[in-house]
């Protein structure tokens, strides 16, 4: 169900047992590595690791299918855009041009361009599991504590986790409001013209905003009455103590980051060139 998207998924796995801080640090290091390198060998290695970790986490593809499809369609869009704006990027980078076939003008398909875009796609696939795992295997209670631990102001950290936590509630509100408005004849289904549908949607947005404002007033009063924001720092009830597994994981993550950067940069180019 859509209401479950991007929220914590309870499973028993070594990944769930790690502290949120560990997962956050790993995610950051992982993204750094994936962002900096275009070295296909490094990317392939990271990809294998990502998939392994994903399997260990016992999260199934079905659990995150909705978000995954969303990201993948974005990836497709990104790839198309790259080709439209810069069809010769691969040739520029690798210095050779193995033309497969011509289309028109500067638009042709070269092995280099395909290889370049394959690398971009790999980068996505390396980062996606890490990012999703951080979100769906970190208990929301621990989420804010983790953000705070790496130096983010606790008020911001708390707001982020509060916002994530309210997504299911807002979705529920949305559903109830949509149903009651439909009963008044406001059609949001495909039977209606797009412009009319967009207009009809406002009759759901308004009540949604109003009832969310009610919610905000209650929660901000509750926060204040219980002393939130009093001191510069705060402690966290559900912060997990760092265990040996956490240190080992961070250490391994660090080594992987350094090694991948060394491999990437040792010959002066971020790209692995198979065309020479």
């Amino acid at each position: 169900m859509a209401a479950e998207m991007l929220s914590y998924i309870e499973r028993k796995s070594p990944i769930h047992d790690l502290s949120g801080v560990t997962k956050l640090i790993i995610f950051l290091m992982w993204s750094t590595a994936a962002m900096l390198t275009y070295d296909t060998r490094v990317l392939l290695f990271l990809l294998v690791m990502s998939i392994t970790v994903f399997i260990i986490s016992k999260i199934s593809i079905r659990d995150i299918a909705f978000v995954l499809i969303f990201i993948l369609s974005f990836l497709l869009l990104n790839n198309i855009a790259i080709y439209i704006f810069s069809p010769q990027e691969g040739v520029k980078i690798y210095g050779t041009s193995h033309v497969l076939f011509e289309i028109a003008g500067r638009y042709n398909v070269t092995l280099e361009q395909l290889f370049y875009q394959l690398n971009i796609t790999l980068k996505y696939f390396v980062v996606i599991p890490a990012a999703l795992l951080f979100i769906v295997t970190t208990h929301p209670s621990e989420f804010a504590a983790s953000l705070n631990r790496i130096g983010i102001n606790y008020k911001i950290a708390f707001s982020v986790s509060l916002a994530l936590r309210y997504i299911p509630d807002i979705q529920r509100d949305f559903r109830t409001i949509a149903q009651s408005q439909q009963a008044r004849g406001i059609d949001l289904s495909g039977n209606e013209k797009l412009l009319k549908r967009a207009k009809n949607a406002t009759s759901i947005i308004m009540p949604l905003i109003l009832s969310s404002l009610d919610r905000i007033e209650v929660i901000s009063n509750a926060l204040e009455l219980r002393g939130f924001g009093k001191n510069k720092k705060r402690t966290w009830y559900s912060a997990k103590q760092l265990k040996r597994a956490d240190y080992i994981t961070v250490l391994m993550g660090g080594i992987i980051l350094i090694v991948s950067l060394v491999i990437t940069f040792h010959d002066g180019s971020r790209f692995y060139n198979p065309f020479n």
Binding site: H139, A222, G227, K230, R234, T235, Y237, S238
Partner: peptide
Amino acid sequence: GQFIGLSVGEDIAFALENDEV
């Protein structure tokens, strides 16, 4: 509306967290 924590313990502890206990 007034629950801040997700679990019973966490919610009860909220005021203590703010006091840096």
